[in-house]
Design a protein around this nucleic acid. Structure first.
Lengths: 333, 333
DNA sequence: CTGAAAGCGCTTACAG
DNA sequence: CTGAAAGCGCTTACAG
């Protein structure tokens, strides 16, 4: 057994054919005679030959690499999306180059992606600067923002209908007889939090109700704790809270029950957004707006690969319907 | 703005230097004069030049790509590991090629990795066949098994001390006055489940106690449900259960409280393994054995990169200490 | 169908 | 320090 990998030239030598013939045998778009194919395959398997994907990428200009940029994985919505996205891409013979980002190193990370000649970029919980977006556009690399959008940027996006989702929560809470309805926002600069809030207010207005209080949790566990404490310093307390995502809602429920000794939903109702697996756990039974993760993944893959394969980058936006899932964390009337 | 990326030859032409000089300017190991560097950098930035990592990998034989193979991401231990591992690798200028695997497609996935010339492989929740292990050894690609090991295979491994962890749970449960102690296993063919169980029995034996019952949950949520129902068909019920990981323990707690109307820990004690973030949620307050995830990631990175960088593959095994975290899901006496 | 040859964008001895 | 040249392992016109 030789330690060094066999090349197409090695196979050609053994099979007594040209190197081109070996290459053609392993290329779906080229054709070779049966006799040739048989000899090449025999030699290849004898040597344990495996085409070098990097060389193939160099010469063909197609790396079949897709970059996936993620900022954090502690919100369980993202690991699931990551898994589904990876599987979908793999199924189409693309491969995922994974990058974790911090607010600070976004630029260098995108440079790295581009150095590796990725054919497309999916950004999940990260933000895209306008200079980076322009850089990607310049190199003809399509990018799709997953679960967020930025109107001013040349990047496609896939989201659920956050405005409608927020609106439904408002109607649901008002129908449940709540009087003092509060909102805990996610990251103020994210379109998801913004849209959920806007839709929520819209729904409230439709019902002739005004928001009772508002705080910011930044989509973080700790931030949600701060937000809830802030909401409870006043003498008048909310009797319902719409929390901008499930991840924060769990923290809110723990604090409400623990530190404040409140019962959910008897004393206060909680509604989240996302419908991550934990939302259905008995300890939480969170009423929440379900994002259609699988459909969002499908849309992401098709928008991205359509542009990759036709070599045209254009801006597309998919907005998928969401659905209120009623469990036990909010009173229904 | 040209759509096509600039090459080192383009930069050389503009800067009126040789292509070699451009290459040297972007190579940390080569040296160029200050004057040269200045001119090259000016031309490069003017053209938006970015070295092609694929070409660099081809010629240097170093892709700086590490493959990460994962089977599932719904056990929250893995997303966190994935995040930390990616960050650690990125910090050392390596990049992660992510592969999701099914029990069935393991072989083709490893072939893909090798085609992309990865310099090392980390397998997280996946199993390694002996033929694949041999294939990797043959190509000189180091592989480290994360959170599992296979004695017969030429692959390094990083685990926590599962035997000692299981042993501590036994002593803890016996000290808590439990009489009928059961165990719910994970995947029967995994070393982690096997070791946790072996250590558990060892500890029980040290206390002069024998196991009361045993069932298999396969590390899956549904499997845990089946296991718990199986454990409760007999008239004699367990008063304590050691569940092979937290992920299953949550399902067990939900069913015990919901379907069986039991109080935890008053009626029955539950202990898990991993200490994922949800274990500390108030709704569960799971007593569990904490795996040192950060240390395991560090060990994985150093074992892997040492072999990558010295181009010698050898089998190493790191076993890191674990620690029982006592919360509220088990009686203490 | 087949082979010889060019070329993808780099790094790295080899001379100067 | 610098440049000309070879070469990494492939794909793909171009002739036959």
């Amino acid at each position: 057994m030789n330690r060094i990998a066999a090349t197409s030239a090695d196979v050609a030598r053994l099979a007594k054919v040209s190197q081109s013939a070996v290459s053609r045998t392993f290329s779906p778009t080229s054709s070779v005679s049966d006799d040739m194919r048989t000899r090449v395959l025999a030699a290849a398997s004898q040597l344990g030959y495996r085409p070098n994907a990097l060389a193939r990428a160099m010469i063909s200009g197609r790396s079949r690499l897709i970059a996936l940029l993620v900022a954090y994985l502690d919100n369980h919505f993202y690991p699931l999306v990551l898994e589904q996205l990876s599987r979908a891409l793999q199924a189409r013979d693309y491969h995922v180059l994974l990058f974790m980002t911090d607010p600070g190193n976004q630029d260098s990370v995108v440079q790295k992606m581009l150095q590796y000649q990725v054919e497309g970029i999916v950004m999940a919980s990260a933000t895209l600067s306008s200079s980076l977006a322009r850089e990607c556009a310049r190199t003809g690399t399509p990018v799709v923002l997953f679960n967020r959008y930025v109107p001013s940027l040349p990047a496609s996006s896939v989201t659920s209908d956050n405005i409608e989702g927020g609106r439904q929560v408002a109607h649901f809470l008002v129908a449940g007889g709540h009087q003092r309805i509060a909102f805990i926002a996610g990251q103020e600069d994210s379109s998801t939090s913004h849209d959920r809030e806007a839709g929520f207010y819209k729904g409230l207005t439709e019902c002739g109700v005004t928001i009772f209080a508002r705080a910011v949790g930044g989509y973080r566990f700790d931030g949600a704790g701060d937000a809830i404490r802030q909401l409870f310093t006043d003498t008048a307390k909310p009797d319902a809270i719409f929390v901008a995502n499930d991840h924060m809602a769990f923290a809110v429920m723990d604090i409400l029950r623990g530190a404040f000794g409140l019962r959910i939903p008897e004393d206060i109702s909680i509604v989240g957004y996302d419908d991550v697996p934990e939302a259905s756990w008995a300890g939480y039974a969170l009423t929440t707006v379900a994002q259609p993760a699988a459909d969002m993944v499908d849309a992401t893959v098709s928008i991205l690969l359509e542009q990759v394969e036709n070599r045209v980058v254009c801006k597309r936006a998919a907005v998928l319907p969401c659905r209120l899932v009623v469990r036990g964390s909010a009173r229904t009337g």
